[in-house]
């Protein structure tokens, strides 16, 4: 499976949401990392034929995906960022319906739905109405529908957003399990998500892919260093004004700061190992993720 994005661009009026992206993907897990508004969802919608690009093309094994039409969508599994469903349908009916939408024969569909319900841990809820499920369960039903056709291309838009820490770990494990032998593209604005699952990370900013590579490559590409230093409380505000501070921990002896900087920020500073979190902060200028940095 090979996907090529060629000069892919989407404009909304004068605003460019996806800006001339040309990249190639093959099997493996790709983590699309970017702050809100970076253009991740727009990019994914184009990959799912939900949105026509203003410019550029997407090829799947060399063929234009819009020309392939249902031949392309047959290969696709998609969990949208805002996953909507039919609230009055039971989990089982919902999945059977989506299976029909995906053109899966009824006998095969029944078997597949049963397997997936087990796999995502919704066996007990199979006959519950979709609207009665908890947030995490809905997301699991969402991944189940994406997997129904055993897709060659699996696209997950912020699959872990809004989940509680336990549910998030379960969900990451589920995605890892499901990601073998296919092309998986998942977007997130939470660094630890991609750190755990992705083989290749794409950092997206203002519609462009700014940096790409494995976590190690991206970390190695950072032109500055990360320092840790224990300082007195009154020093903190001066340092945060001057430097990018990626972490800040209050301790009995003072405050430990984690500072991203090319130069040594203060006397007692010691070099620390760079993490993806630091890279994210360095490039995007804001803290990665809202919840979850500790995991």
């Amino acid at each position: 499976m090979k996907m090529e994005l060629d000069n892919l661009t989407k404009q909304f009026g004068a605003f460019t949401a996806v800006d001339h992206i040309s990249i190639t993907m093959s099997n493996g897990v790709y983590g699309l990392l970017g702050v809100n508004g970076a253009g991740k969802t727009t990019l994914m919608r184009m990959l799912c034929t939900l949105l026509k690009p203003t410019e550029g093309t997407i090829y799947c094994n060399g063929r234009d995906i819009w020309e392939m039409d249902s031949d392309y969508r047959r290969l696709l599994g998609y969990l949208p960022q805002e996953f909507g469903f039919y609230p009055e349908f039971s989990v089982q009916d919902y999945l059977l319906y989506i299976a029909a939408l995906k053109g899966i024969r009824p006998a095969v569909a029944r078997k597949r739905v049963k397997e997936l319900i087990m796999k995502v841990g919704l066996a007990k809820e199979a006959s519950h109405k979709m609207k009665k499920l908890s947030g995490g369960m809905k997301r699991r039903a969402g991944i189940a529908q994406a997997m129904l056709n055993d897709p060659q291309i699996l696209i997950l838009d912020e699959p872990t957003a809004g989940l509680d820490p336990n549910e998030r770990i379960r969900f990451r494990n589920l995605i890892s399990e499901l990601s073998e032998e296919r092309l998986v593209l998942l977007s997130t604005h939470i660094v630890s998500d991609v750190e755990y699952i992705a083989n290749e990370i794409w950092m997206m900013q203002e519609g462009k892919i700014m940096h790409q590579g494995t976590a190690e490559q991206i970390i190695a590409s950072m032109p500055v260093a990360v320092w840790e230093c224990l300082v007195e409380k009154q020093m903190v505000s001066a340092l945060t004004k001057r430097y990018k501070v990626s972490n800040l921990k209050t301790e009995p002896a003072g405050v430990t700061l984690r500072i991203i900087s090319g130069e040594k920020p203060c006397e007692q500073a010691k070099r620390a190992d760079i993490t993806l979190e630091d890279v994210f902060l360095y490039y995007f200028g804001e803290k990665a993720g809202d919840e979850d940095v500790a995991i």
């Binding site: 034929t49 039409d69 249902s70 969508r73 696709l76 996953f83 989506i98």
Partner: peptide, 18 residues
């Protein structure tokens, strides 16, 4: 309204048989 459109139209038959 249900926001079920994304799954619907990205499914194989979402733009023809469905």
């Amino acid at each position: 309204q249900w926001k079920a459109d994304a799954v619907f139209f990205s499914a194989k038959l979402g733009r023809n048989k469905a």
